[in-house]
Simulated scan of single mutants.
Amino acid sequence: MSSIVITGATAGIGRAAAILLASKKHRVFAAGRNQTALAELDAGYENITALQMDVTDSESVSQAAAKVFEALDGQAPDVLVNNAGYAVVGPLEALSDDDWEQQFRTNVLGLVRVTKAFLPSMRERRRGRIINVSSVAGKVTLPFFGPYNSTKHAVESISDSLRHELRPHGVEVVVIEPGAVKTRFGSLEQQQIEHWIESAPAYAEQLRTLQSFHHDLHSKGADPITVAGSIVDACESPNPTPRRVVPFFPGSAFIAIKALLPTRVSDWIVQKLTGLP
C-alpha cells in the first residue's frame, strides 16, 4: 500500500484515479477546491482523505501539505500526482492578461508550488515518485488553444528538467499525456468556443469549424477510467515508463506528426484535421 496525494481530485480524471487507487487499498489524499465533492469523497470511499487545496494559494498548499505530513507521521507521501488544471480557449488577441496569468498560475505555478511542498522530504528520504498529468496538447498545439497548450508544453519541460535533477536522489518523475477524454473538461471548452463565436466575429467562421472538430474529437474520446488506469499503473509499477500517451492512438500519431515532419507539412495536416482553411 502506498500513500498518494492527488490534486484536482474532485472531478474527471483526478476523481476517477483517486477512487481507483483507493479501491486498490492505497491511502489516497484527494485534494481540490470543491467542498461538496470533497465531502462526498471523504464520506463515500474507504481509504480516501479529502484535502481542501487551492494550488494557486501558497497558504492553502502549505496547510494541506501539513495535514498530509501529520497523517503520515512526518513522512512524505510515496507518490504525488499533479493533476489540477483547466483550459482557457479563445483568440489570443481577445483574451485578457488575467486570462493568461490565471491559466499559468494554476496549470504551471500551481504544479510547481505543490511539488515544492513535498519534494524536499522525498529527496531527503531518497524515495518518491512525482506524476505530472500533462496532455497530448503538451506536444501539439491547436489553434485557439494557445493558453492551455502552452501551459502543457511548460509542464513537459519542467518534468524533463526535474527528472534529470532528481534521478541521483532516488525520486522518479513520470508524465501522463492524455488525449481527448469524455469529461466535463471538454464541455467547458465548448462553452468558451461558443462564447468567442459571438464575441470575436473576426474569428467566428474559424471557431465554428473548430467547434465541430472539437465536438467530434471529444465524443470519441477515452473514458476517464482509462486515463485513471494509466495513473494507477504509474503509481504501482516498480519501473514506470517516464512518459506515456493515453490512449496510445490517436494521441501518439498527433505527436509524431509534430515531431517528425517539417513545420509546413505538420501545419497543413493540422489545418486539414481541424477543417480550418
Score class of each variant (00 low, 15 high):
80 L>H: 10
82 N>I: 00
83 N>I: 05
84 A>C: 06
86 Y>W: 12
88 V>W: 01
88 V>M: 12
91 P>N: 03
96 S>P: 02
97 D>C: 07
98 D>A: 14
99 D>H: 15
101 E>A: 13
102 Q>L: 01
102 Q>V: 01
102 Q>M: 03
104 F>W: 13
105 R>A: 15
106 T>I: 09
110 G>V: 07
114 V>L: 05
115 T>F: 04
115 T>H: 07
116 K>C: 05
120 P>W: 10
121 S>G: 04
123 R>C: 06
123 R>V: 15
125 R>S: 06
125 R>W: 05
125 R>C: 01
126 R>L: 02
126 R>D: 00
126 R>V: 02
127 R>H: 10
128 G>R: 02
131 I>M: 00
134 S>M: 04
137 A>N: 12
138 G>E: 12
139 K>F: 14
139 K>V: 03
142 L>H: 03
146 G>R: 01
147 P>R: 07
148 Y>S: 10
149 N>Y: 12
149 N>G: 13
151 T>I: 12
152 K>E: 04
152 K>Y: 03
153 H>Q: 08
153 H>E: 09
154 A>T: 05
155 V>W: 05
157 S>R: 11
158 I>D: 08
162 L>W: 13
166 L>T: 14
167 R>C: 06
169 H>P: 03
171 V>C: 03
171 V>I: 02
174 V>H: 01
176 I>R: 08
177 E>V: 08
180 A>Y: 08
181 V>E: 06
181 V>G: 01
